[in-house]
Amino acid sequence: MRIILNGKPEELPANLDIETLLVSRNIDLSKVVVEYNETIIKSSSWKATIIQEDDRLEILSFVGGG
């Protein structure tokens, strides 16, 4: 299954939810904001959100900046 992850095409297994994807990449769940098809998904919904073909996912984090 192909999706667009952080602006780049990526192959992912089917039936993958957002939380499992984040954990598989060692991403600290408390630190990120997830935008799913241009809508922010609350962390409480990550487990229940199954990623579909052609979805666009952005995993973002607040960092220092001017």
Binding site: D28, I59, F62, V63, G64, G65
Partner: peptide
């Protein structure tokens, strides 16, 4: 104060600015 938003591709040991 200002902060910025960046893409995260994989886990890192960085702390949370917040």
């Amino acid at each position: 104060v200002t902060v910025a938003l960046r893409r995260v591709d994989k886990g890192s040991a960085d702390e949370n600015i917040m």
